[in-house]
Amino acid sequence: MEYNNNQQEQQVISLPRIGDPAPAFEAETTHGTLQLEDFKGSWVILFSHPADFTPVCTTEFIAFQEIADDLRKLNTELLGLSVDSVHSHIAWVRNVKEKMGVELTFPIIADLNKDVAKKYGMIMPGESTTETSRAVFVIDDKQIVRAVIYYPLSTGRNMPEILRLVKALQTTDEHGLATPANWQPGEMAIVPPPKTQEEADERAASDEFECKDWYFCKKHI
């Protein structure tokens, strides 16, 4: 099959979908050379930012650091990325510590050749061809992409939502339940709808769940 240049470019910038294996990579980071495989067994928040030494990114990195301990308790590691050199990252990390009093403890990928950014579709050419957008890939302990969030260059991300998302995904895995809008840990979760008439009748008659109707049941976890 032949591709012209435009098709090839389209191919490399497409993002991995939810449920896909996370694309493997080896990258230079502020913590040395890391492979995605090094994180096997842990969940990973792989996130990109446009550039070091920019104000919105600085607020985001401080905010990511603030949830790092909570994420660690969820067996989840942070891994940042931008199209900057490792020396730029190191200088920025030192600057954030000196000026803002916050020590950034997670690794940051120096993706100067955009290898990882292209594999994960982190560059939005309509917005910028040189900077990565504010992408978040939630990768589970089996290295499957479980959720994807994209924000534009102008808008900083919401860390409580990222934390809530990881908790919701892990709750789904542990209990086989879904989570409703605005769900928070400790609240009731959604029982998947029945797939047969018999199951629907049994569900409606059961007092195990709190049901509005046969298809809409919740359960305490």
Binding site: G32, F39, S42
Partner: peptide
């Protein structure tokens, strides 16, 4: 030390 760092270090 986080497992990912140990794996990276051992590989090096």
């Amino acid at each position: 030390v986080p497992l990912f760092k140990v794996r990276s270090s051992l590989r090096d």
